[in-house]
């Protein structure tokens, strides 16, 4: 499964980079989302994956005894997911606004900021 997940991560990165190399702003944002998900999975996988062992302390114990999934990557990813939502929203609105101002979503035509 690790090998499969590694391939998935690679695919997400590749897709993300391919998308941010496009000229369309919307694709750029989708590319960012793909990269974000790839990074999340990467962190998740590198913390080692384990089945059926959530990092919860059993009700009758005061600390964890058996093997458990690493809680640190999970805490990292949890905030990353929420923040990336904020980032996406901001990026989308920025695109929308930019589109309204310069009347194009072609990044190549947006670099002449001085003319606007």
């Amino acid at each position: 499964m690790e090998v499969l997940l590694a391939i998935v991560i690679g695919t997400l990165y590749a897709a993300g980079i391919f998308m941010i190399l496009r000229r369309s702003l919307v694709r750029l944002i989708i590319g960012l989302i793909l990269l974000g998900n790839g990074a999340n999975l990467l962190i998740f996988l590198l913390g080692r994956i384990a089945k059926g062992k959530p990092p919860l302390i059993p009700e009758d114990a005061n600390f964890m005894t058996a093997a458990y999934a690493d809680p640190i990557p999970q805490a990292l990813i949890l905030t990353a997911i929420v923040i990336s939502f904020g980032l996406q929203a901001f990026a989308i609105v920025l695109v929308k606004r930019a589109y309204r101002v310069v009347k194009t979503d072609d990044i190549d035509q947006m670099n002449a900021t001085d003319d606007v």
Partner: peptide, 13 residues
């Protein structure tokens, strides 16, 4: 904060 932020974003848009 999460309610505030996400609703502000969605409602504004």
């Amino acid at each position: 904060v999460v309610i505030g932020a996400s609703l502000t974003i969605i409602f504004t848009i």
